[in-house]
Amino acid sequence: MAELSDDYLKYPNRGHGMDHDRYPWSQLHERPNVTWPNGARVALWVVTQLQWFPMDMKPAVPVPGAMARPYPDFWNYTLRDYGNRVGVYRIFKVLDKLGLKSSVAINSALAERHPFLIEQVNQRGWEVVANGLDMGHIIHGEMDREEEAAMIKGVLDSLRKLSGQPVRGWLSPIRSESFNTPDIAAANGIEYLCDWLNDDMPYAFETKSGTIHNLPHTMELDDQQVLVTLRHTEQEYVDQLKDQFDCLYAESAERGGRVMAINLNPWVTGQAYRIKALEEALSYISGHDGVWTATGAEILDAFKAQA
């Protein structure tokens, strides 16, 4: 086998803090307590993810939920599409019934195909978050910078035009970034990212276009991750959501406001046999005093007002 260069035993970034400049090293429990509006203890941030998986998609990196069978893969195409036709309306009905809001992270190509989805979001006064172009266009570390910049700008132009909203949040498809993504997003007016999974609270994030924030989106509580990738039962999914809430709610008594993010993929949780499980978990959480149903932008504004 090849000899290993002695450079492999050199560690140029081995010093205090992080090995990059995006954010300073900081432990959650050492930061000042955060207060939410009306003294709420937990900001419940539901994110509904609306995505289009084109049947001819050829993503540069593996995408969970992608076409997986020989072309034409009607199996996977139509099952993903189920979420945008059926599942999403089951989820919205549950949220409406419980008086909960959602940020809706949407692929711009899907919004262009079905502006009706954007109308549904706007009617409720909910937030549109940019979720890239479609699930075949994945940002990655070897992507050309100009190509990425043009794509991000195109996505934001399209979603802003269709929704009439400022579109302040960015969630990369499968949370995949290049080294340039935060800079490009910030240069296009994005105020918060959802891709980084390293905290339970918003935190400041440095870019070439100034300081933006990362909000604590979730993979651990993502329905696709839990129910499809890890194959947990619906009861285990409900237990996980309740356990997460119980811990954050208890912590908030001493350590200030917390954020609980729940990420929903309508083709997963919007299935007929799963929707009651989601309702059970959301009823449990929203049945507590001091739960603030909020969009990402509202959480960001409340956080920045006291930072």
Binding site: L4, M18, W25, V61, G141, S176, S178, D195, N198, M219
Partner: peptide, 27 residues
């Protein structure tokens, strides 16, 4: 890169596994 094993599945930066592990030290 070590010839015996690559560190991250995706081309760098692999933000999801990196930040997921960073959670351990921060929170």
């Amino acid at each position: 890169l070590n010839p015996g094993r690559r560190a991250w599945p995706k081309p760098h930066p692999d933000v999801v596994p990196y930040s997921h592990r960073d959670y351990g030290n921060r929170a």
